[in-house]
Amino acid sequence: MKNVLVVAELKNGLRKITLPAITFAKQAAQKLGGQVHALVAGEGDVSAAAEELKKYGVAVIWTASSPALKNYTAEGFAKATIKAAEAAQAGIVCASATAQGRDYLPRVAASLGAGMASDIIGLDDIGGKMAFKRPMFAGNLHQWVEITTDRKVVSVRPTDFDPPAAGAPSGEVRTLDVGIDPASLKTKWVEFAEVKSERPELADARIVVSGGRGTKGPEGYKETVEVLADALGAAVGATRAIVDAGWVPNDWQVGQTGKVVAPDLYIGLGLSGAIQHIAGMAGSKVIVAVNKDPDAPIFKISDYGLVADLFKAVPELLAEIKKLS
């Protein structure tokens, strides 16, 4: 059981967020002296995603197709992953720590009798043991854990492993019969209400503009955060406070319990920088904060801080940015 199995995430094809988990898998496979296998699971023809995966240096790509996998359920995906883990002789099973990965991987661990490390941000060696590095307590502390079982399950924080470079297609595609009876699943998918957006995805945008309670309301948020984001071709983010208040969709929340982002540039407007928010953006390359309170904690982690009223600063920012182009 030296191989490492990565489970791909699909949404109209392969989700890019799968790629950092492949990087982790390669590191882990090297330590174990095994190969990287991948699982592409869905309904109908999933070969396009399998072809896409061939670019990233995976030895074997298992494709599983079943009516039971038409819509995601934790039970269905766990069952398919467990089958694939057996077929791949996987010592480590991993996926990116997305809403999906976090949801079904613990079921896989329970079924395989494996220990699981969530949200890992690094793979180290401590005293000859494989040490999985992860944040705890909203990133206030970092923890290195050992998984004592032979089989191990890991969810990989996508922001902390660089995606592998695409290369010449390689790897062998094999079909996996998962044999899941849809009627056996105790969770039935009903519907999905998508938050549609023309903007880049928050999780992998190069620039993120985020707003907090200082934007004063949904209108204020639109006029400042969204307008600035569109001028920069950026994704938008938010604090829990304004998501709870219903100003913006929940999907935009950045932080310990929202999305974790690590863009090249993160601009925070009218947000205080609570530890739970910082947990989701501290890995950004450059952090800019605009806040009217000079003592706001966000300034402690900002590369560039501007003490100002954001409603005055944003129009000026737009004018200055225009001058650049």
Partner: peptide, 23 residues
Amino acid sequence: PKVKSLKVAEPPARKAGQLVPDV
């Protein structure tokens, strides 16, 4: 436990930045 803590440490602090006077 199947998962054991080997080490806990403070995360590396971000380098303190600068305040800028204007936009």
